[in-house]
Amino acid sequence: MQDDETLDVMVNGVSHQVTVPARRTLADLLRDDLGLTGTHLGCEHGVCGACTVLVDGEAVRACLVFAPQVDGAEVTTVEGLAGDDDRLSALQAAFSEERALQCGYCTPGFLMLAEDHLRRSGSSDEGEVRTHVSSNLCRCTGYAGIVDAVCSAAQQRMCPVSDGAS
């Protein structure tokens, strides 16, 4: 027994109506139905955080949410971070500058996790940042670069640099 569900969802400011099997996860909805393959899947059971996206502004594991649960919600994925002209956000630029990625598999998840941190607490306190990013796994960087990048982006938000990057 299985029915399809029709739902409306706003992703990165664009609204979509889709009809999918109820068991479609948000991660697969984004990747397979909407073609937004920036959201990655690692473990598919909530442990690694590679699939982290924002739902109504809050970080969630997209592999642990079924598509019908986001009916009417606003979703932000890694594709929604860069500006219109594809200019990297300050957070993305900080990841590049601080060498916060190597293979890049975990990066979309860490970016969305960090985006949630910047929007909510925005603290550049290293301890707080470490606790927050401990949510996700990276098998390459050893985390130091990721922590530095988030701290640096948080500092920039508090005292923006002159070129006005946001």
């Binding site: 027994m1 299985q2 569900e5 099997p21 109820a22 068991r23 996860t25 697969d28 598919e44 019908p68």
Partner: peptide, 8 residues
């Protein structure tokens, strides 16, 4: 790693 089918 995909869930079995279900009605929602």
């Amino acid at each position: 790693m995909k869930p079995p089918p279900f009605t929602y």
